[in-house]
Each structure stands twice: as structure tokens, then as C-alpha cells.
Amino acid sequence: MKILVPLKRVADPDNANKVKVNGGKLETTGLEWKPNPFDEYAVETALRLTENGTNPKARQGEVVVVTFGPKDTETTLRAALATGADRAIRVDAADDALDGDLVARALKALVEKEKPDLVLLGKQAVDGDSNQVGQLLAEYLGWPQATFAGSIQSEDDKSLVVGREVDGGTLKVRVTLPAVVSVDLRIVAPNSVRGKHTPPTHAYADGVRFAALMAIMAAKKKPLAEVKLADLASDTALKIKYTGFELPPARKAGIKVKAVSELVDKLKNEAKVV
């Protein structure tokens, strides 16, 4: 199976409380770049689907990673190559020249060239929290989509049974490939992904794999192609325009109560909520 995994780097989500707004503009200076965690899960999922988990070094298929951005986003691609992806593509673009729709349209052109069986990506990037590229791409391609995947089972790499995490529980769907799947948090649990090459008894370590130093060195030699955005999308106009940012209203500081009885008294007589 050939899998294309689009990746995005985001300002370190664990430092999002350091997000500053200055004169209506978002300041990201001083924030460290990290791969979007959901995209890291997508890479891990792609690797699990294209290997025998008992011998993960031999890739049974191909995993291609792609990102959009300036030269320094190649760090994100190299990190994915180090964990096992085969090759990478960087679509050269300035960060502020992109929106989800443009990325989806450019990905469509890339998919038509690369012809993957599956596009796997994170359900959302934790900076803009938009949760849209997978769905837009699926529609532009005329492919089925399975969003918010918490589990994936490959049926001989012709179709996938995907457990989608929805508001009411887990919704299971069967998609015939090629398809777009966006992954949720629990896709990296030990038994979430069942590829056709891995024995059903095999349980993965929880979470994403880490690259060994040797693999990080070797990843520097893996192919990384650069493509121009204009070669993938003729219309580069953005459909969404951000005009300002502000911090959310602060909650006023609360109090600590000393005992359960005091808490109940406050809830009843002060907040009047019980």
C-alpha cells in the first residue's frame, strides 16, 4: 500500500499559553516549532499499515510525507523520514500564503501525480484547530473519507474498517480505497491499527515511535523533493482572511475552600447552582 501523509508544523502546543497578542496581531516569536501531534500519529499509523510489526524495518509499501512551508519546515519532514517514512516532498510556500482550502487543492494535484492508495493525516492542527483539510481533499478528489479515526483495520489493503470517534460513541465505517482518513488521539494505542502484514497477536508500544540516532543520520540521505505551490494550484487566492486576534477574557480568580461543607454552602448560597 502506498500512503501519503501531509504534515504541518505548529507552535509548540504545550506552550500555547504563551501565545501573545500585540496590537491585534498574533506573536509566535519565541514559540518553538513542533510537528502537529495529530500528524505524528498519522505517520505512526502509516508506518503500522505498511510493515510487519515484528520486523518494522522492512517497509511493505511506501510512505511519502509532504509539508507546505518555507525551507525550515524540512525539519518536520526529516523527523518523519527518521521514524521510517521513505521519501518527502516540500511544497514551497510562505506560511501566511496558505489556508486549509489552498493546501487541500494543492494536495489534490499532488495525489493525482503520486497516486497513493490512502491519504492519512491528523484530524486537526492544534494551532488553527480548523479540522478541514482531510474533508476538503476527499471532496476535491471525489474519494470517501473517514475522519476522527480511533482504529483502522486493513482488509487486504483493498478496504479499511475505520472506527471513528464521534459525539455519540464509535462509528464504524468501511471505506474502499483510495480514501482519505484523518486520525484521532487513540489511533496510536497498542492495538488500534491492524495492518495486513502484522500478526494479530502483535501489540505495539503505546504512542509514536522514536527515531534512533542511526536512523536520524540515515534520514538525511533519504529523498526530499521541492515543489512549487504554483505548480500544484493555479489559483492561490486564500478563502479565509484573518484580520485580528485577541486574548480570551480572563476568568476571575476563585477561592480555595477548606472543607466539603464549605463548598456545598458556596454552591448553594453564593453561586446558587445546586
Binding site: 502546543p13 484547530d129 478563502k239 484580520t243 486576534f245 480570551p248
Partner: peptide, 20 residues
Amino acid sequence: LVFRRPVFAGNAYATCEITT
């Protein structure tokens, strides 16, 4: 129409317009 939406896990609110 000018929209307001949370970004960065609600650590900021953005105002935005749709150009289409």
C-alpha cells in the same frame, strides 16, 4: 460578515472573514 473563532486551544480568539 465578520466571524470570531477560538484558535490555539482557545488561548486566543481570531476575527476572520471569508473572501468567497
